[in-house]
């Protein structure tokens, strides 16, 4: 039986409040009457989705895997991987991607946690602030790259501001070939700017699922703000953090258009290498090998995150 409180609230959770907790305990009471023909109905309803996933997900996935590991004659081989690793830009490519993820993701984690906690404490203006903070969610990586190009490019705003402050006379080529560091910083800032919102959304939703009473109880027992965060909010937020980090880490390894927009090909990353192989070099098998590499890294980090933030099922909210 459903709890009385939430039963007929309209399901339009404008703000994340405690009643959404109830969404978790979804009530599935199937009237499996023959007259309502519901024994087969769920399968009919998921059939299109299953079919679609089979055709557009499972099948192409098997193809790309096969292509990465086979020769044109259909023998198993690792030569495409050897080819990939042997390429002179490979080390740079891999290092760039990993470094970028290693720096961007922790910053985003801290920033999104800070923003989410702030949102949960906000009394007024919450909706507006939340909207502003989630705007980048709707902005493509290409557009984000262009946005930061407007700032870092030679005739961009940063140069104008620095000039206005009297710090420089001539514009600096931040994104030039000679200035690897500023190029990296620009890409990093663009990534932080663009993709923190997705983590924020997941964490705000996650905090909404934690009943306020836990924090209040901790406070009554004498825990300060930091202790409350560390001992109550953080552990209870682990499942959301897991989702947020996994999604974010995977997206970090897929970084592509931001980099292209800001640097062209001066800052090689894995996804860019896939694109290059596919189009410029027309070497589909090596592109597939890159794809497998990205997948392998993604899976490895997913497992790492799952392990790091593991929560026994019994200890969940």
């Amino acid at each position: 039986m459903l709890g009385s409180g939430r039963a007929f609230r309209r399901p339009l959770p404008g703000r994340v409040s405690s009643h959404e907790t109830a969404l978790g305990h979804v009530h599935t009471r199937a009237p499996d009457s023959d007259a309502m023909n519901s024994r087969s109905l769920p399968y009919l309803l998921i059939a299109p989705a299953l079919l679609f996933l089979a055709v557009f997900f499972l099948y192409p996935f098997s193809l790309v895997a096969w292509q990465a590991f086979s020769t044109d004659e259909g023998r198993l081989t690792t030569e495409h991987f050897a080819d990939m690793v042997g390429y002179w830009k490979f080390n740079d490519t891999l290092r760039n991607t990993l470094w970028l993820a290693a720096i961007v993701v922790p910053i985003q984690l801290v920033l999104s946690l800070l923003m989410a906690t702030m949102v949960s404490k906000m009394q007024r203006g919450r909706d507006m602030v939340l909207y502003i903070w989630t705007i980048p969610l709707g902005i493509s990586d290409l557009a984000a790259g262009l946005i930061w190009l407007a700032i870092f490019e030679q005739t961009g705003y940063l140069n104008s501001i620095l000039h206005g402050l009297g710090l420089i006379e001539q514009p600096v080529a931040f994104l030039g070939y000679q200035s690897k560091l500023t190029l990296f910083v620009a890409i990093m800032l663009a990534e932080v700017w663009r993709a923190t919102a997705i983590m924020l959304v997941i964490l705000v939703a996650g905090i909404g699922l934690i009943p306020k009473e836990y924090n209040e109880a901790a406070e009554v027992f004498g825990a300060g703000p930091w202790q409350r965060f560390r001992r109550v909010t953080f552990p209870l937020l682990k499942p959301s953090l897991q989702t947020a980090l996994i999604l974010r880490v995977i997206l970090a390894f897929e970084v592509f258009a931001v980099v292209i927009a800001l640097s062209g090909t001066q800052f090689p990353v894995l996804m860019g290498a896939v694109y290059e192989r596919q189009f410029v070099l027309r070497d589909t098998s090596v592109a597939a090998a890159y794809a497998m590499l990205i997948l392998a890294i993604s899976i490895a980090f997913t497992l790492l995150v799952l392990w790091w933030l593991r929560v026994p099922k019994e200890a969940r909210i």
Binding site: P11, P13, R15, V16, E20, L23, G24, V26, V201, I202, V204, A205, G206, G208, L209, P239, S240, Q242, T243
Partner: peptide, 8 residues
């Protein structure tokens, strides 16, 4: 937010 609330 509703989406991620339940997705977790």
């Amino acid at each position: 937010f509703a989406m991620w609330g339940i997705a977790n």
